[in-house]
Design a protein around this nucleic acid. Structure first.
Lengths: 194, 194
DNA sequence: GTCTATAGAAAGATAGAC
DNA sequence: GTCTATCTTTCTATAGAC
């Protein structure tokens, strides 16, 4: 079959995006290479023409999922920074985020999964995390290393990860609402010690 | 070989505790039944005399890990509630928790893992979560459903889960310290809206 | 109840045709 | 580069001896 370098890159990108969807939804071990290739409308034999291993794809999928997830889709540049932060918090801690059709935020959905992976994967995850901290710090006008920004990221990611694993609908929605509300108060509180 | 009902229960308990250690450290798919039985100094053939499936053991292991983890070992009854809460936060968000020899807190170490499991497992996880919320609410003198208690649990669990997956030592320790500090402030802040 | 042995399925990775 | 076919390993679960 005919092909070109551009065509190959497109195919490769399709594989990465399929992986971003499936991995964030089901975790590393919950998805086989066959699943990913079928989702990308290919067959499994071709996988190794693009990636040396499943792990190599995983780390790229994490980066890709981050840029496709709810945390990266905030196009309302007309709003103030504070309003955009509010919007991010609301979208991130929403039931929709837990049932999205696009890739989920890998920080929340793969948090414990990544802990078992190699250094390359953890590096990709760490990079995505730092980018989120910088993004939030920017909107909140704090340093990305400030205690309240770091604590807020932990609350957002923990809230979503927790909510996803809880069995109890009521507790889940209360938890998400609480994180959203307390998160905003945390940013706007007038305590210099934070 | 001779045996008694009590003997069987002891063997069963050894299996559950081995599972608690290994599952919290490596996740559901990272541990085989063979691993667990070897850790309990048994062979894999005997497993199904105690449990109908790997999932059934998993849900028991989550409960067991919770009662053995750092979050349940706060024997300093001499301290005030506020001091005990501080102590819990400090221990939970410590580097030692990330490198413990006893079972880790399943809430933080299995958060995304449990999301892929069946209802029985998610039920066990949810129960453990509610118990932690009640415990913290008690020390903080709030309702377990109060926004600040829920937000605090998300921050604690998210902070530990995140820290474990990050590649960068500095970011990890800053994150843990931030969650500890902001967590205490969150509880003691004088804002009735929380 | 615990052991050894093994059936049966799934999945990562490779070989070779086109 | 992508396909079909297959090798190999790993793992859950079961069978049968003791």
């Amino acid at each position: 079959m005919a092909w070109s370098p551009e065509k190959k890159q497109l195919t490769r990108q399709r594989i990465v995006q399929s992986a971003a969807h499936l991995f964030t939804a089901k975790g590393f071990d919950g998805v086989s290479i066959d699943d990913i290739m079928r989702h990308a409308q290919l067959t499994r034999g071709g996988f190794y023409a693009h990636f040396p291993s499943k792990e190599a794809l995983y780390s790229e999928a994490i980066t890709s999922a981050a840029s496709l997830s709810v945390a990266s889709k905030m196009p309302d540049a007309a709003l103030s920074d504070s309003q955009r932060l509010q919007q991010l918090l609301k979208a991130y801690l929403s039931e929709e985020h837990l049932n999205a059709t696009r890739p989920y935020c890998p920080l929340a959905f793969l948090a414990t999964d990544v802990a078992h992976q190699n250094d390359e994967v953890r590096g990709a995850y760490t990079k995505v995390y730092k980018r989120l901290a910088i993004y939030i710090a920017d909107l909140a006008e704090y340093s990305p290393n400030s205690e309240r920004v770091l604590a807020l990221t932990a609350m957002m990611i923990g809230g979503v990860a927790l909510a996803r694993s809880l069995n109890d609908e009521r507790t889940r929605s209360k938890l998400l609402a609480a994180c959203e509300k307390v998160g905003m108060q945390m940013i706007h509180a007038d305590e210099p010690s934070l």
